[in-house]
């Protein structure tokens, strides 16, 4: 489902050129739960940003669902992200002025759906992440783990092809991290959600199907 060919991202810092991604070619299949691991500075976030259309690579191809996404205009990329991609970041970044439910139905609203459809979709996915009883809570009335689950629900509400997570549990304690990891695994097993996750934690390995190790912008190990 995702084909990445000769992906390069070079940051030109004047005197030096940082090869953050140095010729990466890999495929990721539909329904896979993949972990990206590697030392700090190895290019994990950079990889996720390129594949997630948050940034433009220096060269290479990214084909998602048979679409060469690098050919899309900025506007088309925004729409592609809205329709087909979901993101969970280290910072939960949910809107403090909105309730959990409103935060989650925002991306549905952007799709031009009616308010009833938005609320129904948002409720369904909030139930899924175990926040059925916290829908009307504001950010400050939610724990860190719950906020991150709101962010996950927001990422999932438009039924994305791929869910991206960059150290989504880094700000959480171990117990909340495990809850999030288990939620990811459940989404993956039960609904076939494709997930690409950046992590540092060794204990996360047991939740995933496959681990891609990066070092200095290259894939050094790719294991099932």
């Amino acid at each position: 489902m995702i084909e990445i060919k000769n992906l390069k991202k070079i940051y030109d810092m004047g005197a030096i050129k940082v090869k953050a991604l140095n010729d990466i070619s890999i495929n990721i299949e539909k329904g896979e739960f993949v972990a990206l691991m590697g030392a700090s500075g190895s290019g994990k976030s950079t990889f996720l940003h390129q594949v997630g259309l948050l940034d433009s690579p220096t060269s290479g191809d990214i084909i998602i669902d048979n679409i060469n996404v690098l050919d899309l205009s900025e506007k088309e990329k925004t729409l592609f992200r809205l329709n087909k991609l979901g993101y969970v970041f280290q910072e939960y970044a949910i809107l403090e002025e909105l309730t959990a439910l409103e935060n989650v139905y925002l991306p549905v609203l952007m799709m031009g759906k009616s308010k009833q459809e938005c609320i129904a979709a948002a409720k369904e996915v909030l139930e899924k992440v175990g926040l059925g009883d916290r829908m009307d809570h504001f950010q400050k009335e939610l724990s860190g783990g719950q906020q991150q689950r709101v962010a996950i629900a927001r990422a999932l509400v438009n039924k994305p092809k791929i869910l991206f997570a960059d150290e989504a549990t880094a700000n959480l304690d171990t117990k909340s991290s495990i809850q999030i990891l288990e939620l990811f695994r459940e989404l993956n097993k039960k609904y076939g959600q494709t997930i690409i996750m950046v992590t540092h934690e060794n204990f996360h390995k047991k939740y995933v199907d496959r681990i891609i190790y990066l070092k200095d912008g290259k894939v050094i190990k790719n294991m099932e």
Partner: peptide, 10 residues
Amino acid sequence: GILKAIGIDQ
């Protein structure tokens, strides 16, 4: 930035 990332139009 996050809103733009999740696909909210500028």
